[in-house]
Amino acid sequence: TPAEQLLSKCPWKEYKSDSGKPYYYNSQTKESRWAKPKELEDLEGYQNTIV
């Protein structure tokens, strides 16, 4: 779907730490963070409005 294509192009991906806590990693900037990036939230919100 178009929304899945947008998400696949987003540099932010969700991973799980050893303790199972989700964290987010940007493959372009090599940045990681615990809080979900706004860019990823926006894309997921867009995906939910299409489905």
Results as ranks from 00 to 15, higher is better:
1 T>C: 08
1 T>G: 01
1 T>L: 03
2 P>Y: 09
2 P>C: 06
2 P>L: 08
2 P>F: 15
2 P>V: 11
2 P>A: 10
2 P>T: 15
3 A>S: 12
3 A>P: 11
3 A>V: 13
4 E>V: 03
4 E>H: 10
4 E>C: 03
5 Q>G: 10
5 Q>K: 14
5 Q>R: 11
6 L>Q: 15
6 L>E: 09
7 L>M: 14
7 L>C: 11
7 L>T: 10
8 S>H: 07
8 S>Y: 06
8 S>I: 02
9 K>Y: 13
9 K>E: 09
9 K>P: 14
10 C>S: 11
10 C>T: 14
10 C>W: 08
10 C>L: 06
10 C>V: 10
11 P>C: 12
11 P>F: 13
11 P>Q: 09
12 W>T: 03
12 W>Y: 01
12 W>E: 10
12 W>F: 09
12 W>C: 00
13 K>R: 11
13 K>G: 02
13 K>T: 15
13 K>Y: 00
13 K>S: 11
14 E>W: 05
14 E>R: 10
14 E>C: 12
14 E>S: 04
14 E>I: 14
14 E>T: 01
15 Y>H: 01
15 Y>T: 06
16 K>R: 08
16 K>Y: 11
16 K>P: 05
16 K>L: 09
16 K>E: 02
16 K>G: 04
17 S>Q: 04
17 S>F: 03
18 D>G: 08
18 D>P: 13
18 D>R: 07
18 D>W: 03
18 D>Y: 08
18 D>S: 14
18 D>Q: 08
19 S>N: 07
20 G>F: 00
20 G>T: 03
20 G>I: 00
20 G>K: 03
20 G>C: 02
21 K>Q: 10
21 K>F: 07
21 K>G: 07
22 P>G: 01
22 P>E: 04
22 P>W: 03
23 Y>A: 04
24 Y>W: 12
24 Y>G: 01
24 Y>P: 01
25 Y>F: 06
25 Y>I: 03
25 Y>A: 01
25 Y>K: 13
25 Y>P: 02
25 Y>G: 02
26 N>L: 00
26 N>C: 00
26 N>Q: 03
26 N>I: 00
26 N>Y: 00
27 S>V: 12
27 S>Y: 10
27 S>I: 14
27 S>E: 09
28 Q>W: 09
28 Q>L: 11
29 T>K: 01
29 T>L: 02
29 T>A: 01
30 K>G: 12
30 K>R: 09
31 E>M: 07
31 E>I: 02
31 E>V: 03
31 E>H: 02
31 E>R: 01
31 E>F: 00
32 S>G: 05
32 S>Q: 10
32 S>M: 14
33 R>M: 14
33 R>V: 13
33 R>F: 04
33 R>P: 03
33 R>C: 13
34 W>T: 14
34 W>L: 09
34 W>R: 13
34 W>A: 13
35 A>M: 11
35 A>D: 13
35 A>R: 11
35 A>W: 04
35 A>T: 14
36 K>C: 03
36 K>L: 04
37 P>S: 00
37 P>F: 00
37 P>C: 01
37 P>W: 00
37 P>G: 03
37 P>R: 01
38 K>S: 09
38 K>M: 06
38 K>G: 07
39 E>L: 03
39 E>K: 02
39 E>T: 05
40 L>M: 11
41 E>W: 05
41 E>N: 09
41 E>K: 04
41 E>Y: 10
41 E>I: 06
42 D>Y: 09
42 D>R: 12
42 D>S: 07
42 D>L: 09
43 L>M: 13
43 L>D: 12
43 L>I: 12
44 E>T: 06
44 E>Q: 07
44 E>F: 00
44 E>V: 06
45 G>M: 11
45 G>C: 09
45 G>W: 04
45 G>P: 12
45 G>V: 12
46 Y>P: 14
46 Y>T: 13
46 Y>M: 15
46 Y>H: 15
46 Y>K: 14
46 Y>A: 14
47 Q>F: 02
47 Q>M: 08
47 Q>D: 06
47 Q>E: 12
47 Q>C: 11
47 Q>G: 10
48 N>H: 07
48 N>L: 02
48 N>D: 04
49 T>Y: 06
49 T>I: 04
50 I>G: 13
50 I>K: 15
50 I>D: 11
50 I>F: 06
50 I>N: 15
51 V>Y: 05
